[in-house]
Simulated scan of single mutants.
Amino acid sequence: MPAPGRRALPPLLAVRAFEAAARRLSFSLAAQELNVTQSAISRQVRLLEDFLGHPLFLRLTRSVALTPEGAALFRAAEQSLDILEAATRRCRGDDGRTTLKLSITQSLAVNYLLPRLPAFAALRPDIEVRVLTSTAPVDFDRDDVDAAIRLGPLPGRRYDPKRPYIPHELARSWRGIAAFPLWDEVLTPVLARSLLEGQPPLQSPADLGRFTLLSVAPRPTAWSDWFRSQGARLPRGTTTSDFGHFFMTLDAARAGRGVALVPTLFLEGLRADASLAFPFPSSTPSAGEYYLLCREDMAKRDPVAAFLGWVQDDAQRRD
């Protein structure tokens, strides 16, 4: 029995190591997170198990799983460390803000997220969103991010072959990853009205072949797929020009360099621009969607949960 007034607490360093290992269900990933060796994590977990008199993990061939005692302790440890972290911030005089490191593509950042971030900041001034841009499949074991928004087909989901193809991979590994659907991708042509001056009216998609078709290099079949979705074929002899990102093709279209094929998600606010024309409104979704990706254990915790709820509300308003 502990002496009166003395807490029967486990070794706190061991609790921290256990919480990281339980959250990641991996001793090696916990070691990377805490910047120690895997053997150090194993020693701390063994120390905690000896202190409690119960095994906390089932050691499987290539993974670990929590025992019932381990699951109960993990819930308590997670809550306790959250409380301790918040109290530490207050004692240190921190402003109480938390940081969400979000990885998204540059086009999505420029044309969708950054114009809307002030609205999220007004709703949750305690969360600072740090935007990191990347087009690579997210890798939560390597990338120092809390969440990511990516476009691509969800593994295991079947898509109509008539839909435009998306040659993107969402994540390097799906172990312990949660995916939340946000928006469909619908591609639509956009061009400067100045290009139409002195030209016959556009009556069918094939008439776009008079102009340079502005392409995104990572999506080489986007235009041919779009024409197919409209029941047409890419016109013979069409001139194309490649760019690295969708926002670049949109800028080129504004400058009158050709016709851009752009996700409708990026066009909010542009439809009132009298200098742009949207000749053939599209409704066919591509074979893939935009998803918010995060670790399963982070999905219900601030700041990821708060941002996810906000962006899902926006996605519903767009439906």
Rank of each mutant, 00 (worst) to 15 (best):
M1L: 12
P2E: 11
P11I: 09
A14V: 03
R16E: 14
A22F: 10
S28I: 10
E33M: 08
Q38C: 09
R43E: 10
R46N: 11
F51A: 05
G53V: 05
F57Y: 12
T61M: 11
A65G: 12
A65Q: 15
L66Y: 04
A71F: 00
A72E: 15
L73I: 14
F74K: 13
A76E: 08
S80I: 08
A86M: 14
R89V: 12
C91S: 07
Q106H: 12
P118M: 10
A119R: 15
F120T: 06
P125M: 01
D126G: 03
E128W: 04
F140A: 08
P153K: 07
P164A: 01
Y165V: 05
H168E: 14
H168G: 00
L170M: 13
A179P: 06
E185G: 03
L191R: 01
A192K: 01
L196A: 03
E197I: 10
E197V: 14
L213H: 01
P220Y: 06
A222E: 03
W223Q: 02
W226Y: 05
G231P: 02
T240Q: 13
S241R: 06
D242Q: 07
F243R: 12
F247M: 04
A253H: 01
A253K: 02
A272Y: 07
A274L: 11
L276T: 02
F280L: 06
P281R: 13
E289M: 13
Y290A: 04
Y291G: 05
L293H: 05
R295F: 02
A315K: 01
